[in-house]
C-alpha cells in the first residue's frame, strides 16, 4: 500500500494495484478511486459489467487476456502518456505491450495537421525511439493506440458482432435450412406413396364402424332416417363399399399444392367440393 502511494507513474500504480487481485480490498479501492478522480471518470458503479470485470481481473495477471484495438482519439488532450519503465521486474502486461507495439505509429490525421502548425519545432525523428515510443515531452495520449483491458477473450463477456462472421453464419444457416426442407419433401413423398393404400384401407374400416355405430345407437326412427340421408353418412357409405377412393393430386397450374382427396372410382372425378389451395402467408 505504501509502495503504491510512492509511485509517481499512474500506469505503474494501476498495474501494481491489479496485481494484488480484484478491487475488493479497502486499499485497492482507495487507490483506484484516486486514479479515477484524477482522470475525471464517473464514480464506480456496482453493475453487471463491473462485476464481470472484477471476476476476470485475476486472469489479466496470469495470461494475455486483453487484445489490442485500433487507435482511437480521446477527448482529454492535456493528459501525457508515460511508457512503462524498463526493468527486470516489469509485469507481463508491460512486456506484451512493448512486444506488440507497432514500430511506426502514425498519429491521427488531425493530430498531424495540429503538429505541423503548432509543434513543428518540437517534433523529433521516430527512428530515435526504436521501441516505438514517442518522446514524452511532445506526446499526448490522444494519438496513442489504446490498449483496452475491458475486452476479454473469455466467452463470459459480450463481444461486438463481427459482420463478416455474421454473414458466414447466415449463409451456413440458409444452406442447412434448404437441405432440411428438401429432406422433408422427399420423406413426405415416400410416405405418401407407400401409405396411400394403407390409408384407404383404414378409411374403409372407420367408415364401416361409423355407419354401424350410428345404426345401433340412434335414439328413434326419425333421427335415424335424417342421419342416413345426410351427406356425411352418404360419403361414409361410399367409402366403405369402395365406390369412392383416395386419390393423390399432383398439383395443377391452379392448385400448386399437392393433396390427397376423395374421387369416384368409376369416373375419376373428385367427390365433394373442389380443393382450393390457400397460400400460407401473413397479409
Amino acid at each position: 500500500m505504501n509502495s503504491n502511494r510512492c509511485q509517481t507513474n499512474e500506469v505503474n500504480k494501476f498495474i501494481s494495484s491489479t496485481e494484488k487481485g480484484p478491487f475488493t480490498g479497502r486499499d485497492n479501492t482507495l487507490s483506484f478511486n484516486k486514479i479515477g478522480s484524477r482522470l475525471n471518470s464517473p464514480p464506480i458503479l456496482k453493475d453487471k459489467i463491473e462485476l464481470k470485470f472484477l471476476q476476470h481481473s485475476e486472469d489479466l495477471n496470469q495470461s494475455r487476456s486483453y487484445v489490442n484495438i485500433r487507435p482511437r482519439t480521446l477527448e482529454d488532450q492535456s493528459y501525457k502518456f508515460e511508457a512503462p519503465n524498463l526493468n527486470d521486474n516489469e509485469t507481463s502486461w508491460a512486456k506484451d505491450f512493448r512486444y506488440n507495439f507497432p514500430k511506426n505509429v502514425e498519429p491521427p490525421i488531425e493530430n498531424q495537421i495540429a503538429n505541423l502548425n503548432i509543434n513543428n519545432g518540437l517534433r523529433t525523428s521516430q527512428t530515435d525511439f526504436p521501441l516505438g515510443f514517442y518522446s514524452q515531452k511532445n506526446f499526448n495520449i490522444a494519438s496513442f493506440p489504446v490498449v483496452d483491458h475491458q475486452i476479454f477473450k473469455t466467452t463470459g463477456l459480450e463481444h461486438p458482432i463481427n459482420s463478416h462472421i455474421d454473414s458466414l453464419i447466415n449463409a451456413e444457416f440458409s444452406e442447412l435450412e434448404a437441405s432440411s426442407l428438401e429432406e422433408d419433401v422427399h420423406t413426405e413423398e415416400e410416405n405418401s406413396g407407400t401409405s396411400l393404400e394403407d390409408e384407404e384401407t383404414a378409411m374403409k374400416g372407420l367408415a364401416s364402424d361409423i355407419i354401424e355405430f350410428c345404426d345401433n345407437n340412434s335414439a328413434n326412427k326419425d333421427v335415424k332416417e335424417r342421419l342416413n340421408s345426410s351427406k356425411f353418412m352418404g360419403l361414409m357409405g361410399s367409402i366403405s363399399d369402395g365406390s369412392i377412393v383416395l386419390k393423390k393430386d399432383n398439383g395443377t397450374e391452379r392448385n400448386l399444392q399437392k393433396h390427397v382427396g376423395f374421387c369416384f372410382q368409376n369416373s375419376g372425378n373428385w367427390a365433394g367440393l373442389e380443393f382450393h389451395d390457400v397460400e400460407d402467408r401473413i397479409a
Binding site: 390409408e199 383404414a202 378409411m203 372407420l206 364402424d209 361409423i210 355405430f213 383416395l246 390427397v260
Partner: peptide, 16 residues
C-alpha cells in the same frame, strides 16, 4: 385423412 375420421368416430362413441 384417416386420423380425422378416427377422431369423428371417437367423438361419436364418447357422445353416446
Amino acid at each position: 385423412m384417416s386420423q380425422r375420421l378416427q377422431s369423428i368416430k371417437d367423438h361419436l362413441v364418447e357422445s353416446a
